[in-house]
């Protein structure tokens, strides 16, 4: 593949902290290689800003291999940028061409307040998991791993749902800022396995109650979440969640513990 260099204009959201307002700043970067990752382009810009005595741009990132879920940039109106099924850190500059202007914002959602610049607080996701996103088994209680055969089809489906990296792109893409794709991926992952069966009703009810409490909106059914999910989590998980929720709601003996 042909390598090339490019000059770019960046319009990036700058915000000092959660209390103050923010605004877009414009930056120029030059000689960006098509082989760089999007975050490496930001590294170049930040090095340049520090040398000029200016404030670098704060952004979340860690593994830079698309799995930790920390990176979270809203690029040209789309979470994680133009490539399908790709996190910001795996987006590479060959997606852009010389002279492009790129607009970069943080995730925008009431439940994800901005901490600084492009960094948001996603601890609401941790609290949703705390509400029931687990199987209640203490260490040391387990029977042999092969004691319960699990049909490969179910195991594969559970795995596909469990591939969620908790980045929050689904929330950022949704015009109601719903967390339903995230939540449904967890409910599906656990409900599809026999080990998760016992708690599945409470799990769905309690996690949804927590989601509402955190200020996430309701599902729009437009599928924007699925379209931007870097791990291609399917919207059918939401249908499965709805079924779980409905049957759990009908069984009136379930209550929040």
């Amino acid at each position: 593949m042909e390598h090339y260099n490019m000059n770019l204009t960046l319009k990036v959201w700058k915000q000092k902290n959660a209390e103050t307002g923010g605004k877009f700043e414009t930056y120029k970067v030059s000689n960006i290689s098509s082989e760089m990752s999007f975050l490496e382009m930001f590294d170049v810009l930040n090095e340049q800003l520090i040398r000029e005595g200016k404030e670098p741009i704060a952004f979340d990132h860690d593994c830079r291999e698309g799995i930790c879920g920390m990176c979270s940039m809203y690029i040209n109106g789309r979470p994680h940028g133009p490539w399908h099924g790709t996190t910001t850190c795996q987006l590479h500059m060959r997606a852009f061409k010389d002279g492009d202007t790129i607009v970069v914002e943080p995730w925008r959602a009431k439940a994800f307040p901005v901490v600084k610049d492009l960094i948001v607080d996603r601890s609401a996701f941790d609290r949703i998991i705390q509400a029931g996103g687990y199987i209640s088994v203490n260490t040391g209680n387990a029977q042999d791993g092969n004691a319960i055969p699990i049909p490969k089809e179910n195991a594969d489906k559970a795995f596909a749902a469990a591939a969620c990296i908790g980045c929050g792109a689904c929330v950022a893409a949704c015009k109601n800022s719903s967390a339903l794709l995230f939540l449904s991926a967890k409910v599906s992952h656990l409900a599809l396995l026999p080990q998760g069966e016992a708690e599945k009703k409470d799990r769905a009810l309690n996690m949804i109650a927590q989601m509402d409490k955190e200020g996430f909106g309701s599902c729009t059914n437009t599928g924007a979440c699925e379209a931007v999910c870097p791990k291609e989590i399917e919207i059918t998980n939401i249908a499965r969640l709805n079924r779980e929720y409905l049957t759990a709601g009908l069984a009136s003996d379930t209550k929040k513990h």
Binding site: I135, Q143, A155, L193
Partner: peptide, 18 residues
Amino acid sequence: DQCVAQGVPFAREYGGLL
């Protein structure tokens, strides 16, 4: 054993075993 009990979706064969 512990991980299976927690719901870790390990790869399985068609017979349902790990």
